[in-house]
Design a protein around this nucleic acid. Structure first.
Lengths: 248, 248
DNA sequence: CGCCTTTATTGACCTAAATCAACACGGCCG
DNA sequence: CGGCCGTGTTGATTTAGGTCAATAAAGGCG
């Protein structure tokens, strides 16, 4: 048996054996195309917590897939305001927004010590011209993000604090389920301030809502881990908060 | 001289002569590639106000480019809440979010009597495999949307009512400038309720803010048209409202 | 281990904007 | 021309959640 480090290396570099291949880029590629993609992928050294994977404004050289661990993307707008745009888990792709002008429009930061697959954009680009299946896969992934963004705008715009937290928890739980992980336990690896920023609330409010939901026996909070006790109640609250729009 | 109808027909179907080609799909395509794209484009009949171009859930058969007029996209989420996702002007593309699963995730509705270029997705898809330049163009356009969505989330999350309205007005103005139209006059072709829905405010608040800005000599409102009198002040207010996030 | 910094919770107060409600305007049709 | 309905404006009241402030855990480090 090869030493562990070499084993990991191998694991990291073969999409074909990756347990996340159906979530990630490789989905829907045949073995031949997949091989070609694999050759581009390079799994770098582990990225420690709070380290930037890429920074807003950087040229777009790579896109990244989360292998293990987690990350957030942050954007600082023209006026200097900071907004967390999303949290990313194994199988998620980081960097799509850089295709617009070949520069990243947000920074990506590891939430914990994590591993990422790096894919050089120029080579990917060339390969995409060669493999229609890969192009289609990329298009779909981007389109998915688009459609999730829509959902997020709705959450930010229409839901009250309880609705936002509930939606977030359900969303994280759903994404865990997709990855075959226990969906009743949701680890909140990010800080309260990150949650608050992402949901556009104050961290005091996040705290309050979490304890309120806990008192209502809907969740059980323990520092950086939430147990979902009553999923239906959570769903109910995630929509309750939303207000109906006026008729146009 | 050919009759007007025929003249328009011709105008509609040749991207090469379209004044919007640098905003729209054709940008960066050479004449040869452009010709091939042109053959796909079909400009249908005029779409009257409040008519659906496509409906949420419809299969993705075409994507659309606004030729003249304007449109909005609306999404109704699982819980029945309605959210306007965006307003679209000449040169903008509608339908990108359908690539995820070949179904539209929102409806598109004309705000006024408008013309759209229809592009059949299956043929576009085939052409994209053939023309790397077109693929790149599409990727960039989608990526642009992604990056604008980010900006919008920031607006919805962090800005107060004045900031939201100001940002919207500046945004619309900027987009007019891009199209070579007078940027100090911004027509608000949508209803107040649409504005309110889009910005996640109540229509009363929209009204109040507009009059407040008018009283401050920053804009001049007349039913469905806003004159920007003091752009700097508007810019100032568009950021003033935003609150700073807690440090992570 | 104990100190100090960072992160999280809880409380009291206040403000922006939602809500409720009345009213005004403009266009359309009889 | 006058009434009516859709649309927009303005006012009074309420409330969710932001703000300020104090306290409590938790984690890091000499």
């Amino acid at each position: 048996m090869p030493p562990l480090s070499q084993q990991m290396q191998q694991l990291s570099e073969t999409c074909s054996h990756c347990s996340l291949r159906y979530l990630c880029l490789p989905d829907h590629l045949d073995t031949h195309d997949l091989e070609k993609l694999e050759r581009l992928v390079d799994s770098g050294a582990p990225v420690v917590a709070d380290t930037e994977l890429f920074a807003q404004g950087d040229g777009l050289t790579h896109i990244y897939a989360v292998r293990d661990g987690s990350a957030k993307t942050v954007r600082i707008d023209e006026e200097g305001f900071e907004q967390i745009l999303g949290f990313y888990y194994p199988g998620d792709i980081l960097g799509f927004d850089g295709f617009a002008d070949q520069h990243h429009h947000c920074s990506a930061v590891a939430l914990e010590t994590s591993h990422f697959c790096r894919i050089p954009v120029d080579q990917l680009d060339a390969l995409v011209d060669e493999l229609p299946s890969l192009r289609q896969r990329l298009t779909r992934l981007m389109s998915q993000v688009l459609s999730e963004d829509g959902r997020m705008m709705l959450t930010l715009g229409r839901k009250d604090s309880e609705g936002r937290i509930s939606s977030l928890l359900l969303g994280l739980s759903r994404r865990r389920a997709l990855r075959g992980m226990p969906a009743t336990t949701v680890p909140l690896n990010m800080k309260r301030a990150d949650l608050a920023n992402f949901l556009s609330m104050r961290l005091e409010t996040v705290s309050r809502v979490l304890t309120r939901l806990q008192r209502a026996q809907i969740i059980k909070v323990s520092q950086h881990r939430v147990e979902i006790l009553d999923r239906d109640a959570l769903r109910e609250r995630s929509s309750r908060g939303a207000w109906v729009a006026d008729q146009s």
